Amino acid sequence: MSSFKPPLFLLAAIGVVIAACTVPSMPEAPDGAKFYAENCVSCHGMSGRGNGPLAKELDASPTDLTLLARKNGGNFPRAWALSYIYGHPEQRDLGRVMPQFGGAMANDTVPVEINGILTPTPRDLAGLLVYLESIQR
């Protein structure tokens, strides 16, 4: 039988590494609010209700982002929102007016729980999800 006992600092270091790999890191809502203000207000409006300054110029009315949970049985549809906002890189022309936010931002991801699965998500979009969840009514 071996009586090797690793030094306490080594055990602590291993614990920190394991925790860093398993604990999700969600951006705070202010990051999402900033991203929203810079990229979404012109169509969806400050309140998120689809009444931004450019809304009247669009063929289709922007979605009321404050009703996403209500339209989904009271649960905020993270997977749907993320996939719609991020966009699908192979489907550029789907008649959608809203820009896709994928691409280069995919290099800076954080784990976000989507339907019980930690999913690598662009940091900016993870923050936006937190913000959108906060404005549900």
Rank of each mutant, 00 (worst) to 15 (best):
E38K: 12
V16C: 09
E133Q: 15
T119E: 02
Y84W: 01
A81N: 11
D64E: 05
R70E: 15
L10Q: 02
A13C: 12
L65G: 09
A126C: 09
A13R: 03
Q136D: 11
S61A: 15
A81I: 11
G50N: 06
E38C: 00
L82M: 12
G103D: 01
Y86L: 15
L11Q: 12
P30L: 08
P89I: 08
F76H: 06
L125H: 05
G15K: 00
Y86C: 07
D124Y: 07
E90Y: 03
P89K: 05
R70C: 02
T66W: 13
L8Y: 09
S61F: 03
V112F: 11
P99C: 04
S47E: 12
G52F: 06
S3T: 05
L125W: 03
D108G: 00
P6S: 12
T109A: 13
L11V: 02
L11S: 09
A60I: 06
L10G: 07
A55S: 15
D93T: 02
P122W: 09
K5V: 12
F35V: 08
P62R: 10
E133P: 09
N72R: 07
I18V: 15
A13E: 08
I135A: 01
K5I: 03
A19C: 02
L132N: 08
M105A: 01
D124G: 05
T22D: 04
P62F: 06
N115H: 09
W80C: 00
R123H: 11
P89R: 01
F76N: 08
P89L: 04
G127H: 12
P30Q: 10
A29D: 07
K71I: 02
A33Y: 08
T22V: 13
F4K: 10
Y131R: 05
A106T: 12
I117C: 03
L129K: 04
E113F: 07
G32V: 08
L65N: 04
S134G: 14
A33G: 15
A55P: 03
E38Y: 07
I135R: 04
P89A: 00
L65E: 03
G103Q: 00
K5C: 03
A55R: 03
P89H: 09
A37F: 00
I18T: 14
A29E: 15
H44M: 11
T63L: 14
E113H: 08
N75Y: 09
L94I: 14
N51Q: 15
C21T: 04
R137F: 04
F4T: 08
P30D: 02
L67W: 02
C40E: 04
R123N: 05
P6Q: 11
T66I: 07
G32P: 07
S47F: 05
G15H: 08
M26Y: 15
E133I: 02
Y86D: 11
G102C: 05
G87N: 08
R92A: 13
A106M: 12
A37Q: 14
F101V: 06
A33K: 15
S25L: 07
A104Q: 11
E113C: 09
I117Q: 14
F4L: 14
W80H: 10
G95Y: 05
G52W: 06
V130Y: 06
E57R: 01
P7D: 01
R70Y: 00
R123E: 01
V110F: 10
I117S: 13
G116W: 10
L58Q: 13
G48Y: 07
L10N: 07
A12F: 00
